[in-house]
Simulated scan of single mutants.
Amino acid sequence: MAISKRFIAGAVCPRCAAMDRVRTWEQNGIRYRDCVNCDFFEQLPIEEEAASELATRVNRPREEQKRDELQTVKILDPKPSSRDT
């Protein structure tokens, strides 16, 4: 079975700082990354439990989004102007 290696769009190599040169693949429960520009290579175990997703403005609960909605505020001047009298 051939292993499919995929490039990570926008990824920057931690060793040579080249962009769009890092690729990733999985094999036997281990995730690998390498750079085609230099000799960077890394292997990471694949976590079985799902990592919690970072909260963004898109995936927050609706109640939290309502709290952040803009409201119009009218500011009243407590001093009457000379035109009002």
Rank of each mutant, 00 (worst) to 15 (best):
E69Y: 09
R23F: 15
E63I: 11
R62Q: 13
N28Y: 11
D20K: 04
E26N: 15
D39N: 12
E26F: 01
A50M: 11
E42Y: 07
C35T: 05
E63W: 04
P80G: 04
I75C: 07
E63A: 14
A51D: 08
V12P: 00
C13W: 11
D39L: 10
V73N: 06
N37C: 10
S82K: 11
P78W: 03
C16H: 03
R6K: 14
K79L: 11
A55L: 13
N59C: 05
E69N: 03
N37E: 13
C38K: 05
R57E: 10
V36Y: 03
E49F: 04
A11N: 04
A50E: 15
V58Q: 09
S4V: 13
A55F: 03
E63L: 07
Q27C: 02
S81A: 09
C38V: 04
V73M: 07
C13V: 00
A51N: 08
N59T: 00
E47W: 06
R21L: 00
I75T: 07
E53A: 13
A2V: 00
A11F: 11
V73E: 04
K5Y: 01
A50R: 13
I30M: 13
D84S: 14
A2F: 09
V12Q: 10
R31C: 07
D84Q: 13
E53Y: 00
D84I: 03
P78T: 07
L76S: 08
I75Q: 00
C38P: 01
L70K: 14
E42G: 02
D20N: 15
Q65F: 08
